[in-house]
Write a protein that binds this DNA or RNA. Structure first.
Lengths: 270, 270
DNA sequence: GTCTATATATTGATAGAC
DNA sequence: GTCTATCAATATATAGAC
């Protein structure tokens, strides 16, 4: 098991340095200290190694939500968790953003899209949580700008071989986003956003995420979301809604959405 | 000559789709309608085709300055020119930012660094011209954020196959930068910037650019810059300074710097 | 599990006919 | 100028010995 880990680490370094396609299996094996043939005892092919790398990273990203403090609705605290992962996996980041590996492999492309979507969803919800539902028309623009800024700082770090403090950087970036948001008044968004963010949309988004990750209790979750939708419009029975939302709360992949559902319910109920 | 252009265009499309290393000479030749052997009548190697592509783009970038209106010191007007080029050459952009081609070829790496530096210089000077010398401590951060935002919007455009209006986008981005700059007061920059931007530094930067591009009148330009430096500190003879600056103004690669030199001289002279 | 040896395909590039 | 034929190198992946 140790050799496999070592292979992945060596491969990551080589991919980051020279790119995926220009790194040969032979080179990976040689630098790990085994023969070319031996490589295939651990991975069925080169792309499968890459796929495992993506999976590892994707899992790290999903685990960020665990560390989120739901009460303090500040962009900085969300970004902090994410940036720590980025910095820790900065070599992987470099591979992903400096060379787009084989478009030909469909599995890979799909995995990358999922990773991208996961991040995108997270960021979108950060904004809603921090600035409220009124930034809905601008949310697409804000997410794009945030992602661009984060990537560029990461790139700067890589190229200049500087180490960055996740806390300082997240605090800096979120303050700049504050500046942008404050200045947004009366501006027309550049990209079309939703005119307003209704609870129906939020529930729909949550369902999509549940579908994306094939969770064991998928059916139960979908039913729960539907029930919430029904109760919100019908009786608004607080006891039942509390129960339903509590069930959703267990699921970390939709944690951010659940917090918002609760928020909107209680605000709407006043 | 026409076949050569066609080869480059086909190659660009293939590079953008599948990446540089995963596009074979055979594929380029086949899609252009000639044989693999025929390819080598036009380019000595695959990397040489790529190098020519970079040169073409670099030239377009340098030509932007021509269209700048020096009197209207707005970030938007500068960005507009640049974004038009980006959008026009969006396939090239995709190649550059989605796959970093061979690190092994030194000529290529050098050309890419030059291109990056050129853009970086431009952006830095845009900020100085728009917001004045007092943003000096923040200029590195501002440039990074601007570049990140621009890249991300370009990426969004590519991935969603949407066309964007350069004027609208440049206007939007510059307004967001306004928001950031206005919010900057009392913040400590994240990356170290120059504490203040003196005219000596500006002249030094200008010299570096002159040295980077091997211009035919390099010696004359360097002498001129030195003379400006001398006169600024000594007699401040307006007639002679006017002459010297006028000579610099002809040179488009340092146009932005020249405008600023003139500005600082006249402000300092009051 | 890891090695050596090998199979097979594809790459970038060259030589020489037309 | 463009083709065909071919080179040498390298790639991923497999087979079978130990």
């Amino acid at each position: 098991m140790e050799t496999k880990q070592k292979l992945m680490q060596t491969a990551l370094q080589l991919f980051a340095d020279n790119g995926y396609s220009e790194t040969s299996v032979q080179e990976i094996a040689k630098q790990t200290g085994i023969s070319k043939g031996g490589f295939y005892s651990y991975f069925p092919s080169k792309i499968d190694l890459m796929l495992e790398m993506v999976d590892d990273y994707h899992q790290s990203i999903q685990n960020i939500t665990r560390e989120i403090d739901g009460t303090k609705a500040e962009l900085a605290s969300y970004l902090h968790g994410e940036l720590e992962i980025w910095i820790e996996h900065r070599l992987f980041f470099h591979v992903i953003f400096k060379e787009l590996p084989p478009k030909k492999d469909e599995t890979f492309t799909k995995k990358m899209e999922q990773l991208h979507d996961t991040l995108h969803y997270h960021h979108q919800e950060y904004f809603y949580l921090t600035y409220g539902q009124q930034i809905a028309p601008y949310v697409t623009d804000l997410v794009i700008m945030l992602e661009g800024i984060m990537k560029e700082y990461m790139m700067y770090m890589m190229l200049h071989d500087k180490q960055m403090d996740a806390r300082q950087l997240s605090s800096w970036i979120s303050r700049q986003m504050d500046g942008i948001v404050q200045n947004l008044a009366n501006q027309k968004p550049f990209l079309q956003g939703d005119e307003e963010r209704t609870i129906e949309q939020l529930l729909e988004d949550t369902k999509e995420i549940v579908l994306q990750y094939q969770l064991s209790n998928q059916q139960m979750l979908l039913r729960t979301i539907d029930e919430i939708n029904r109760h919100i419009h019908a009786d608004r029975d607080p006891f039942q809604l509390e129960l339903l939302i509590h069930y959703l709360k267990r699921e970390k992949v939709i944690e951010i959405q659940t917090i918002q559902i609760e928020k909107m319910w209680k605000q709407g109920g006043l």
